[in-house]
Write a protein that binds this DNA or RNA. Sequence first.
DNA 1: TTGTACGCGTTATCAA
DNA 2: TTGATAACGCGTACAA
Lengths: 357, 357
Amino acid sequence: MKPRSRRSGGRPTIADVARRAGVGAITVSRALREPNRVSVELRRQITAAIDELGYVPDRNARALASARADIIGVLVPSLTNNVFAEVMRGIYDGLGSSSLQVLLGDTHYSGMEEERLLRVFLGQRPSALIVSGIDQTPGARVLLENAGCPVVQIMEIGPDPVDMMVGFSHFDGGRELTRHMLEAGYRKVGFLGARMDPRSQRRLAGYRAVMEEAGLFDARLVTTTSLPSSVTLGREMFRDALGCVPDLDAVFCNNDDLALGVLFECHRAALSVPGAIGIAGFNDLEMMKVAWPSITSVRTYRYEIGRRAIDMARAAIAGDRPDDGVVDLGFMLQVRESTSRTGRDKPVISKGRVRAV
Amino acid sequence: MKPRSRRSGGRPTIADVARRAGVGAITVSRALREPNRVSVELRRQITAAIDELGYVPDRNARALASARADIIGVLVPSLTNNVFAEVMRGIYDGLGSSSLQVLLGDTHYSGMEEERLLRVFLGQRPSALIVSGIDQTPGARVLLENAGCPVVQIMEIGPDPVDMMVGFSHFDGGRELTRHMLEAGYRKVGFLGARMDPRSQRRLAGYRAVMEEAGLFDARLVTTTSLPSSVTLGREMFRDALGCVPDLDAVFCNNDDLALGVLFECHRAALSVPGAIGIAGFNDLEMMKVAWPSITSVRTYRYEIGRRAIDMARAAIAGDRPDDGVVDLGFMLQVRESTSRTGRDKPVISKGRVRAV
DNA sequence: TTGTACGCGTTATCAA
DNA sequence: TTGATAACGCGTACAA
C-alpha cells in the first residue's frame, strides 16, 4: 500500500491521476484547464484515469497556486427582498456552467456590514466583486479601489464609478411616475416610503422635484419610515397618511409591497380605486398586473441587471474591458387601472359588501 | 527592499507579520486561532503588527494546509422563491460573526443539477452541507454519504436521513388544510398545484387522502402543472378548474402565490369569497393576513428551518452531534376569512398548538 | 507537446 | 509557551 498523506482524507490527487495515466502531473493540470494544448491520446488516458479514481481538483490548492479563486463576491442589502432575489437569479444564470462560484453576502442595508463583508471576501482573493448601490462607506470605497479585481456596482448609476456600473436612475423613475400621476388628474399625491435606503431617497427626490415644480408639494404628503417594507406596513402607512391628509387622492408607494397593502386597505375601507384613490408602486412585481384593480408601477430590469453585471465581470476577468463601463438599463412606466381615472371600466367597491362587483 | 513574491500582489503574509513582531510564523498562526495558547505579551505585539501591516489571512492557504475550508455549501431549488429566501435569511443570521462562509447553489428544482453542484462544492472541502428536500438522486445520495462532513436536509422530514434533518411533513400539512376545508362546509374542493416538486406532490397526497376518506375525491378536481408558480398562473389555473368543474366551491392552492391569483380572479369575476368560493394557500406569506378578504394558509417556519439547520451544522462541526438528528418544526393552520363561511372563529388545533383566527 | 523544479501562504508535527 | 521543518495539492516559469 502506498501510504496516503496524513491530512488529505484519502482523496486522490493530481499526482495519483498522473501516475495512473502514465504522464506528468502538469499534463493532467493542463488537460483540465487547456484541453487543446494536450494531445488527444493523452487526454483520453487522463480522462479515463480521472473517472476511475473519482478525482476532483482541490480548488484551494488551485487558488493558492494561481493566486486567484474563481470566486465572485456578491453583496446585496437583503436576501428576502424579491428585487434582489431576481438579481441573484440573473447572476446565477449568467454563470452558466463556468467554474465560477458565488460568495453571497447580506449587508442588511448597512454600510458598516458591507465594509466588513468586503474585508472577509477580499481574504478569498475573488476574481470579481459585485456590490449594490453607489453609497459605499469611504473605507469600503478604498477596499474596492484596491481590490485588484473587476468591480461592478449594480442597481443604480451615478457619477464616479469604482469600476463598472449597471443600473438605472431612481430619481428619474420617481420623477416619471409622479408626472404620470399628475397627468392622470391627481393633485394630493402622497408618498409612502419604507426602509428609505439611498435609492428610496432618490425616488423621493424625484417625486419632490415634480411636485414642487407643479406647486403641489407639501411635507405632510410624505410618510416615511426606516422599517422594512411589507404589505402590512403599506396598509398602516396609508392609514396614517389618510389621518394626516384626509383629502389625499393618490399615493406613490416606494415599492410594490406597500402598494398592495394600500390596495387591500382601500378594499376594506370601501375606497374606490382609482376613483377615490390612485395607487402606484415601484419595481413592477409580477402580481401588479394581476391585482384587482391592476396596479400602476415602474418596471425595473432586475434580472437583466444581475445578468449584465455577471457578463461584464466575466468579460473583465477575461481581459475584455468594455468601452463604457456604465450601463443604464432604464425602467418603464407601466400604467394600469389603479391610476386610470379616465378609464371606462373602473372597478367599483361598495361598502359593507364582501362580494365584489 | 525585501523582495515580494511574484504572485501575492504585495499583500503581507504571515511571515511578514512574524518578522515585524519578532516571533515565528507559527506563533502568529496560533495567536489568530487559539489566542489563549500564546502569551499575552506576544499576543499584543502580534496584534499590533497585524494592524500596522493590514494583514488578512489567506483563506486558500489556510484551507490547503488544514484540509478544511470554513465553508458551508447550501443547495436550494430556487432563489426567487420567497420560501427559500427566508430560509437563507435564517441561515445567514445563524452564521452570526463566525468565520464560516456560505456557498450558495440554485438547483432549479433539478436533481441532476443538484448532483453536479454537489460535486463542485465538494471540491471545496466544505465544513458542512445543507440540501433541500429528501429526494436526492442516487448519485447525490452517495456523494452526501461520503462527503466527510455534517449534512443537513431541510424543508422536509422523512425516514432514512443522510445525516440530520429539519423540516415538517408536507403530507400532514396538506391533510390538515383539506380537513379544515371540509369542516368549513366545502365539498367540491379543487387542488391547484404548480411546479409539483416532491413536496408539492406530498401535499397533494395529503389532500387526496382526506378527500377519498370523505368519498369526495374526483380526479377532475385536481389541476396541476410543472410551470413555476406565480400569481398570474393562479388566475389561469383557477379559470381552467372552473371550466372543468363549474360547481367548484373551494380551492386548495399549492402555495400562496396561486391563492392570491385566485382571489384576484374572484374579484374580477364577482365571485364572493368565502361565500361562493373558499380559498386556501400554503406557506402563509406575510400578505395573506392583509389580503381582502384575508386568506387561509398553512404557516410554515421557513426562517426557523434555516436557522436551526445552521445551528445543527455548527454544532456538528464542533463535534456536538445531537441526540436526535431529525427535527420536526411542524406547521400551523391559519384559518382566515377566505374559508370562514360560518363567520365564527373556530379554534384550530395543529401540532399541539391552539390558535384562533 | 511534455516535463522538471520550485513556490504559493498556511498549518501539523515534533522537538525544545 | 515557542519554533524549525515539512507537508498541503496545484500552477508558473522555463527547459526539453
